[in-house]
């Protein structure tokens, strides 16, 4: 399961909305304890796919290297890749699966008609198939977002 800190979740959603109708992409970093990943930092990366970016994203190798170095400097682990699916559900395509790396959480943000719709996270299993990961949202922060006083 993964937990995304609200501040970086906002930045990721902002990136997805700003990129619409193109796909956005980036990395998330944090700590891993057992089966739980807590994502505390984000690197927004340029979608370097040449041509039509509405159905494809690509991260340039040099941006990948920068992300690894950034993780080292911060003492964090590079744990997740995010991208958006404009006007499509947050379900990985076969193209996503074939290109996917082991270990990483693949967070997909669905943006429908320019508005955030939903997000889901996926990870390759040993058979190279995606399995969905549970995302734990920060309930307290969500409560604050809606102007309610947490208990």
């Amino acid at each position: 399961m993964i937990q995304i800190e609200p501040n970086i979740e906002r930045l990721m959603l902002g990136d997805a909305l700003q990129a619409f109708p193109d796909e956005c992409c980036g990395f998330m970093l944090g700590k891993e304890t057992g089966d739980e990943r807590i994502l505390t930092d984000i690197l927004i990366v340029n979608n370097s796919k040449e041509g039509d970016k509405r159905r494809r994203f690509e991260i340039a190798p040099k941006d990948y290297l920068k992300a690894e170095r950034y993780a080292d400097e911060k003492g964090l682990a590079l744990l997740a890749v995010y991208h958006s699916h404009p006007n499509h559900p947050a379900i990985p395509s076969e193209h996503d699966r074939v290109a996917a790396q082991p270990f990483f959480s693949y967070i997909i943000v669905s943006v429908i008609d320019g508005k955030f719709d939903h997000l889901r996270s996926w990870r390759l299993n040993e058979e190279q198939q995606f399995e969905e990961e549970t995302i734990i949202f920060d309930i307290r922060q969500k409560t604050l977002d809606f102007g309610l006083v947490p208990a």
Binding site: C25, R55, R56, F57, I59, H95, A100, Y106
Partner: peptide, 16 residues
């Protein structure tokens, strides 16, 4: 020597 995994994907199949 750095091994750099390609990070790519997209929302639909067969569309380039």
């Amino acid at each position: 020597v750095s091994i750099v995994p390609a990070i790519a994907g997209g929302s639909t199949d067969g569309y380039h």
